[in-house]
């Protein structure tokens, strides 16, 4: 029974997501769209953090790379959402290659500080290059034009149809990340987290594999950024701010570090709880921080950890 529980949960979750898309109201669809986008961001982040133990404060920059990559492409080159997403992901990955090349030279606190520095460089550029990025206003008026695929044209202007595009890309991401986790590459990443000295003595270049994980997680951050931009029809420079980098870690912490479902469960809890609490009080941050403190002090396995009976 226990073996099939994850498959059962996954099935129920997928059915619920499809059902929400089919019959959910406007608000529920918007909210769930955000949950899915945050899930992609957090799952991607977890490739780096959950598997190699590297804490990055620069991933907001890659999120913004995806957001601005898509935005600029759609506004100035071609209003094609799918190509825009591809361009956004490519921008984010490229940025991650450049930044990662420098950052993976360090680990622990020095890595965290380096990613912070590079991430804030990107933020300051977005903030100051008004002519290109719109400065503090961001890019606006990014419209979800129909996706042209040869003779086919798929409209995604309706939140409901865009919802299914996000769902499809979420499933693709889950599939890819699952495969990565269970690949030889994924085993090396797990090894790096466990004992990096030994990984080197297995004949593996630590830097290259750290960089690999860095770029992969940056690419998923870019995907989340591109999708978020299409959802809101605009970008915000604050999506590149370091404090935004903390979001995927914090939701993953709630869901469960080092678990596959943790980032997704955490994202759902984070966004839904926030909506609920904000109905009653303005003090969402207070409650959120108390939840974080409780989890850090006593339940480091997160929700998934508690449910599966593991307390790390």
């Amino acid at each position: 029974m226990k073996r099939y529980a994850p498959i059962l949960f996954a099935g129920i979750a997928l059915a619920a997501l499809v059902l929400i898309g089919l019959i959910g109201g406007r608000f529920l669809i918007y909210l769930t769209s955000r949950v899915m986008i945050l899930s992609i961001f957090a799952m991607g982040y977890n490739i780096l953090f959950g598997r190699t133990g590297l804490l990055s404060f620069g991933h907001a920059a890659f999120y913004a790379g995806g957001a601005y990559g898509l935005g600029l492409f759609m506004l100035h080159v071609l209003p094609h959402p799918l190509l825009g997403i591809v361009v956004g992901v490519a921008c984010a990955a490229l940025l991650a290659v450049v930044i990662g090349f420098f950052c993976v030279r360090h680990t622990e606190i020095y890595f965290a500080m380096l990613t912070l520095a590079f991430g804030m460089m990107v933020f300051s550029l977005i903030w100051n290059l008004r002519d290109i990025t719109g400065g503090d206003d961001g890019l606006v008026g990014i419209i979800r034009t129909p996706i042209a695929l040869g003779p086919l044209s798929i409209p995604i202007i309706k939140p409901q149809s865009y919802y299914f595009l996000i769902l499809a890309l979420l499933l693709l991401s889950v599939f890819l990340i699952y495969r990565i986790r269970h690949s030889p590459f994924g085993l090396v990443l797990a090894g790096i987290r466990e004992n990096e000295k030994r990984v080197a003595f297995a004949g593996v270049s630590l830097k290259n594999y750290r960089l690999g994980a860095f770029v992969l997680s940056g690419a998923f951050a870019g995907l989340a950024g591109a999708l978020g931009t299409l959802l809101e029809s605009s970008t915000s420079p604050f999506s590149a701010h370091w404090s935004h980098s903390a979001e995927p870690i914090l939701v993953t912490l709630i869901g469960g570090l080092q678990t596959f479902a943790g980032p997704m469960v955490g994202s759902a809890v984070f966004i839904v709880l926030r909506e609920v609490i904000e109905r009653f009080t303005h003090n969402w941050m207070l409650w959120f921080s108390i939840i974080l403190l409780v989890i850090i002090m006593g339940f480091r396995g997160g929700i998934v950890g508690i449910l599966s009976g593991r307390r790390k």
């Binding site: 804490l55 965290a112 974080l292 850090i296 002090m297």
Partner: peptide
């Protein structure tokens, strides 16, 4: 709080202090 996480990995320490940032920002508003 902090005393109990010295033995844990670095991210837990950073995130613990980060949680307090959120807590105090909100408390000041209240």
């Amino acid at each position: 709080f902090l005393r109990h996480v010295y033995g844990l990995e670095l991210p837990y320490q950073l995130l613990l202090t980060f949680a307090f940032v959120l807590l105090f920002d909100n408390l000041v508003k209240i």
